[in-house]
């Protein structure tokens, strides 16, 4: 049984349909890449998983339980940790407060997060809105980890960051993968994403059009589905 499984998910923003039938699975311990051009439904898919958009059709199961229709906080409590698009920390809380407010479970502690991101450890007392963009992204990842998620979901975690910071974040993701963390990741940097991913899903116009190993995503397919 898959850790996360979406079948035929359809979602709307008001009257306009954004997802027309998304299928997606993530197995335990797997890193799965969710890809597609802008506007194809990646973020909507993630919002549907987290209950921020209520799917109108299809099923979403997490750890064997139907989660579609539950309120967001209940879904998160099942063990889903989201790193939202755009480095969304709580700006008026300190780094430490940002992390501790999310704390649940015992595997991930403040010390373990600052071990993964030493820069956060140096800035525990600083307000989040005084951090650089890269540090805020690390904080957003750290905050999601503090909930001890069975599945970590990253939405465009490296977008708009300096290359050197991106390297740090990819390195952290590789460490998490080695530690057996299940991850669903949305990103545009294929050169980093494909080597770390176990499987890929590609969305086009709100429908899953490709599922398979990264190697199976040939240059031709990349051009067709992901080329600009």
């Amino acid at each position: 049984m898959s850790l996360l499984s979406l079948k035929g998910v359809e979602a709307f923003y008001g009257a306009s349909q954004a997802l027309f039938g998304v299928d997606l699975t993530v197995e335990d311990g797997e890193v799965v890449a969710l890809m597609g051009r802008n506007g194809m439904g990646k973020t909507t898919t993630i919002s549907s998983i987290l209950g921020m958009v209520k799917p109108r059709a299809g099923t979403i199961h997490f750890a064997g339980k139907e989660i579609a229709g539950l309120p967001s906080h209940r879904i998160a409590q099942q063990g889903l940790g989201l790193v939202p698009e755009g480095r969304r920390c709580f700006p008026n809380l300190t780094v430490e407060e940002n992390l501790l407010v999310a704390a649940r479970g015992s595997d991930w502690t403040l010390a373990r997060v600052t071990g993964l991101f030493p820069r956060l450890g140096e800035r525990l007392g600083q307000y989040a809105n005084t951090l650089s963009g890269g540090e805020q992204q690390m904080l957003a990842i750290g905050r999601a980890l503090m909930t001890n998620p069975r599945l970590l979901i990253l939405d465009e975690a490296t977008e708009g960051l300096a290359p050197v910071i991106r390297q740090d974040i990819w390195a952290a993701l590789r460490k998490l993968k080695v530690a057996g963390q299940s991850i669903l990741v949305v990103d545009k940097t294929l050169s980093e994403l494909l080597p770390v991913a176990d499987r890929c899903f590609v969305l086009e116009k709100g429908v899953t059009v490709f599922e398979g190993k990264p190697e199976a995503l040939t240059a031709e397919l990349q051009d067709r589905y992901l080329g600009v």
Binding site: M52, S72, R88, V101
Partner: peptide, 24 residues
């Protein structure tokens, strides 16, 4: 307290707080 931090977080952004499993 942690409650105070969560309250401050709820004031700032309820969606983000839900995403870490706390009901605003």
């Amino acid at each position: 307290s942690r409650f105070g931090a969560a309250l401050e977080a709820a004031r700032q952004n309820t969606t983000r707080l839900s995403a870490v499993g706390i009901a605003p």
